Computed example of a mutant assay.
Amino acid sequence: MPEGRRSGGPNPRRSERIWLIGASEGIGEALARAYADRGDSLILSARTEARLHVLAETLPGSHDVLPLDIGDDQSIAQAQLAMRSIGPVDRVINMAALYDPGQVEELDLQRASDIVRVNLVGTLMVARAAVSVLRPAGQLALCGSVAGYFGLPQGQIYSATKAAVINLAESLRIELSGRFDVRLLSPGFVDTRLTQKNAFAMPGLMTPEGAAQAIVRGLDRRPFEVHFPRRLTLPLKLLRLLPYALAFPLTRRLLR
């Protein structure tokens, strides 16, 4: 475990060792910058190794680069083996995901399979690997989405996988209780390469930097779920509680 401490107060926080997956762009990149700025040491993972090296060179401090495709079993096994030589970490945060909206009759079935493989199966494989690399009582954060609260049109496969990730995180929270601190991240709309594919107005749209700050604050606190922005997430949580006769018309209005 890292021994460094930041100065500047009566109770300086201990710097942490964090394995950040999906770090090459979007929220993941912004998270890397936020954690590095507060003195933490990162293991940066994503499919694109070159981007990770560029990112690592621009961050304060010293950080490791570990290429990883969570949609590939062999890649996960190799990364898990490499992590054992790096040593135990304080947090594992998985932000990697695929998204490709469209009408159901226009879906590319191979692409749909890839989304399921990365978003759901890959997240499960990350959780399985995290158990072997986290320190006792370390934190595992899995990224769901507000799209997992309720089925959204033109995001069928993505919404379904994120609903499954929510369920998975809930299961692991109970299963790993007393061993690890399992958390669920539920971002709303964040301005990234993925959401730029959307053809509708996105309420409560945030910057990746704003999302990263919400995640950093949330993971330092006690609640199981970190969801934001609340002006979007709270109405969507209410939507889940409504009868379908009311929920479906409200969803249509939201995305019109």
Rank of each mutant, 00 (worst) to 15 (best):
Phe224Asn: 02
Val54Lys: 14
Leu124Asn: 05
Glu106Pro: 01
Gly9Lys: 10
Leu184Tyr: 07
Ala163Tyr: 05
Tyr149Pro: 03
Pro223Glu: 09
Ala32His: 05
Ile115Ser: 00
Gln80Glu: 14
Ser177His: 15
Arg14Asp: 00
His53Glu: 14
Thr48Arg: 15
Asn11Lys: 11
Gly39Met: 01
Met125Lys: 14
Pro223His: 08
Val190Arg: 02
Gly26Ile: 01
Arg256Ala: 14
Ile215Phe: 12
Leu176Gly: 06
Val131Thr: 12
Leu194Trp: 00
Val146Pro: 00
Gln196His: 10
Glu225Gln: 13
Ala96Glu: 04
Thr207Tyr: 02
Arg193Glu: 10
Ala245Tyr: 04
Arg222Tyr: 13
Ser186Gly: 07
Leu184Val: 01
Ala23Glu: 02
Arg33Trp: 08
Arg179Ala: 13
Glu225His: 03
Leu184Gln: 04
Arg33Leu: 00
Thr192Pro: 07
Met95Lys: 04
Leu219Thr: 01
Asp69Trp: 12
Gly71Asp: 03
Arg231Trp: 13
Asp69Phe: 15
Ile21Ser: 07
Thr233Arg: 05
Lys162Phe: 07
His63Leu: 11
Ala56Asn: 08
Phe150Cys: 00
Ile115Leu: 07
Ile166Glu: 04
Tyr149Ala: 01
Gly9Asn: 14
Ser41Gly: 00
Asp108Ser: 13
Phe200Arg: 06
Ala97Gln: 06
Leu184His: 03
Pro136Gln: 08
Leu68Thr: 05
Phe180Asn: 02
Ala199Leu: 12
Leu31Trp: 04
Leu20Asn: 07
Pro229Lys: 11
Gln78Ala: 14
Pro153Gly: 04
Ser41Val: 09
Gly28Leu: 02
Asp181Met: 06
Pro67Tyr: 12
Leu66Val: 10
Ile43Leu: 15
Met125Phe: 10
Leu242His: 05
Gln80Trp: 04
Gln154Ile: 02
Leu254Phe: 12
Glu49Ile: 04
Tyr158Gln: 00
Asp90Tyr: 06
Gln103Lys: 14
Ala214Ser: 14
Tyr149Val: 02
Glu3Leu: 14
Glu57Arg: 15
Ile174Phe: 13
Gln196Arg: 15
Arg128Val: 03
Arg222Pro: 10
Gln103Asp: 10
Arg13Asn: 07
Asp191Arg: 12
Gly178Thr: 08
Gln110Asp: 06
Gly22Ala: 09
Ala247Glu: 01
Phe200Ile: 14
Leu254Pro: 07
Val216Asp: 09
Leu52Met: 05
Arg217Thr: 14
Gly22Ser: 09
Leu68Met: 15
Met202Asp: 00
Tyr158Asp: 00
Asp191Met: 02
Arg117Asp: 12
Gly148Arg: 01
Pro153Lys: 13
Met206Glu: 14
Arg111Val: 12
Ala199Ile: 08
Ile174Tyr: 12
Arg222Ser: 12
Thr251Trp: 03
Leu42Ser: 07
Ala46Phe: 02
Ile166Gln: 02
Leu254Ile: 11
Thr233Leu: 03
Leu142Asn: 03
Arg231Gln: 11
Met125Ser: 11
Leu142Gln: 06
Leu109Tyr: 11
Gly144His: 09
Leu219Cys: 06
Val126Thr: 10
Glu57Ile: 01
Pro203Trp: 05
Ile157Tyr: 00
Ala164Phe: 13
Ala97Leu: 03
Ala141Ile: 02
Asp40Leu: 06
Tyr35Cys: 06
Gly204Ile: 04
Ser85Leu: 11
Leu120Lys: 01
Leu31Asn: 03
Asp90Leu: 06
Glu25Gln: 12
Ala82Pro: 03
Pro136Cys: 13
Asp100Gln: 15
